[in-house]
């Protein structure tokens, strides 16, 4: 794409000069400044794979940014992360002030499936990639990667990553009926009340009815271990 644009520009310039000189012989030649070179585009193709047995992933959000991480172990979740981790809604995070570019998968990604999105920026200072999505058959578990540095990735280079599971710490892992938005329950998603530790950590895993949590709507199918998601990043431009 970049090379094509470079080729087209001089051709257009030549045509305009010819047109001007033939239509008005008396005036001075019009000097047309060459157009500024187009800003360098960084375009990445992101392919996500759901590696869990029975945890659909909510629409996966990818953001490019310069600083500010979406989460930090030991610190409280932002309201945008809380909303995503409890309900799967990534709209608030995608519009966060530090985000310079974003992309999201269109739908929930079922277990065993893959989906690809493209994210693009011309901001060479904002090439930190962060990814986040909810494991929807949980209270507030999410998976993703924080601050992947893409600045040294050349066109054609690829990067393969796996994503661990974190707990947003904003909702107790009751696994109770009515508290889980995924198909295992169909319960409530977001609730602004924080009734858990209020810091982000690795997730301890789900327990489930089969493992003795009598009030759980989850069963052995919903268990998971790390990693929950595969990520392939290819710089395509």
């Amino acid at each position: 794409m970049f090379n094509i644009k470079q080729c087209i520009a001089p051709v257009a310039l030549a045509f305009s000069l010819v047109a001007c000189s033939s239509s008005d012989d008396d005036s001075d030649p019009i000097i047309i400044d060459p157009p500024p070179p187009p800003p360098l585009e960084y375009q990445f193709e992101l392919t996500f794979g759901n590696l869990t047995n029975a945890q659909p992933l909510s629409p996966i959000l990818a953001v490019l940014h310069q600083d500010s991480s979406i989460w930090t172990i030991g610190e409280a979740s932002s309201s945008g992360l809380e909303l995503l981790a409890e309900s799967g809604d990534n709209s608030e995070l995608s519009a966060a002030s530090f985000v310079t570019a974003n992309a999201t998968t269109a739908d929930v990604l079922p277990p065993g499936m893959t989906e690809t999105v493209t994210i693009m920026t011309t901001n060479a200072d904002a090439l930190q990639l962060s990814l986040v999505t909810m494991l929807v058959n949980t209270n507030d578990a999410f998976t993703g990667n924080s601050m992947i540095d893409l600045s040294s990735l050349m066109v054609g280079d690829s990067l393969s990553l796996r994503s661990a599971v974190y707990d947003a710490g904003t909702e107790a892992n009751s696994e109770a009926s009515g508290t889980i938005p995924g198909p295992a329950d169909g319960g409530e998603g977001f609730n602004s009340m924080r009734d858990d530790v209020d810091y982000v950590s690795r997730h301890p895993g789900v327990v489930g009815l089969d493992d003795g949590l009598s009030s759980s709507v989850l069963n052995n199918e919903h268990k998971f271990d790390n990693p929950a998601m595969s990520v392939m990043i290819v710089r395509v431009q």
């Binding site: 759901n50 590696l51 869990t52 047995n53 029975a54 277990p111 065993g112 499936m113 895993g205 052995n220 199918e221 919903h222 268990k223 998971f224 271990d225 790390n226 990693p227 929950a228």
Partner: peptide
């Protein structure tokens, strides 16, 4: 449930 190769749930 998941008929493709995936991370074992334990």
């Amino acid at each position: 449930t998941n008929g493709n190769v995936h991370i074992h749930r334990g």
